[in-house]
């Protein structure tokens, strides 16, 4: 006999449905709607159909920033994963898991912006690194570590590392490390055993880690704003400028649509490449987070 869903089922799903509608679907629909309207004089929109906001997208400047955003997001994601893999591995094999988990989470207790400012204090012309180099006499004029793409990528990697470490750690923790011994026993080298045996078995964590980092990084706003300078400008900054400075809400919305579209398509393509059909709960959560981030313009 199969269990029949009880009548209460729909009722239990109600809070979830409300939450999704209120915080996820409604903002998204508003942005879709705005993107097809005319710009209001002092911000806001005129409720009149127009494709003008989309026409504005075909602009060399926007296209350039879009490509840069994609490249920066890909590079930062790749680096984040490369750093997170050994960190997660180490945590999973560690005897002090609780302590290490705690250390990964600690930075979250400090405000996001303050942590970015901390990087400015490290990388800036008067910052720690330049101060050190000057004091040992290696340089006389400060070297410019800030306001370039490198700085943006570095700080993004730092910011999103825990989002990659945590899902990797949680799947690696369930991994049976005897399998690595077995691989070595059968002739695999150290790295070979990890690539051929461990990675395929922690793939779900890897996929989640990629989604959790790529999606928010693609919509990043605060990091490029504070450490990026002109070279580091990303789509998130363009959107913010359109909302706050230019007050062209439809244009901001159409750029948001591009961000949402690219990250959704990117994610779907990425998931399609994973052989296993269907997506895990974690990945579904990541997708929802993506849409929310895209709709909210990131941070």
């Amino acid at each position: 006999m199969t269990a029949r869903p009880t009548k209460g089922g729909a009722l239990y799903a109600l809070p979830n449905a409300l939450w999704l509608t209120l915080f996820f679907l409604a903002p998204l629909l508003i942005i879709v709607a705005y993107s097809f309207m005319k710009k209001g004089l002092y911000g806001g929109v005129e409720p009149e159909f127009s494709l003008h906001a989309y026409a504005l997208l075909a602009n060399a400047g926007i296209v350039k920033v879009a490509f840069r955003t994609l490249l920066v997001a890909l590079a930062a994601t790749a680096l984040t994963i490369l750093v997170a893999l050994p960190v997660g591995y180490n945590m999973a094999r560690s005897k002090n898991q609780t302590l290490k988990l705690f250390l990964v989470i600690v930075p979250f207790w400090t405000n996001f912006l303050i942590r970015i400012y901390a990087w400015i204090a490290i990388l800036g012309n008067e910052g720690t690194i330049n101060g050190f180099l000057r004091s040992v006499g290696l340089v006389s004029d400060p070297i410019h570590l800030m306001y370039n793409q490198g700085a943006v990528i570095l700080v993004l990697v730092y910011m999103y590392l825990p989002y990659a470490v945590l899902p990797l750690f949680s799947t690696m923790d369930k991994f049976d490390f005897i399998l690595l011994d077995a691989a070595r026993d059968l002739g695999a080298g150290k790295l070979e055993s990890i690539v051929k045996v461990m990675l395929p078995n922690v793939r779900s964590g890897l996929v989640t880690a990629v989604l959790f980092t790529f999606i928010p990084i693609f919509g990043a706003y605060a990091v490029p704003l504070l450490v990026g300078g002109k070279d580091g400008y990303m789509l998130g900054n363009v959107i913010a400028d359109q909302v706050m400075k230019v007050r062209d809400w439809p244009f901001a919305s159409s750029i948001s649509m591009v961000v949402t579209f690219v990250s959704t398509v990117g994610v779907l393509l990425f998931l399609a490449r994973q052989k296993r059909p269907g997506i895990s709960k974690e990945q579904a959560a990541a997708l929802a987070a993506e849409a929310a981030v895209a709709a909210g313009g990131g941070r």
Binding site: D176, I178, L179, D181, A182, A183, R184, D185, L186, G187, A188, G189, V197, P200, N201
Partner: peptide
């Protein structure tokens, strides 16, 4: 281990699940 002419049958079998 990979350089020895020994092979092991592990207690938990250690088959590669993937």
């Amino acid at each position: 281990a990979d350089k020895r002419r020994t092979n092991t049958v592990f207690q938990s079998y250690a088959l590669f699940p993937h």
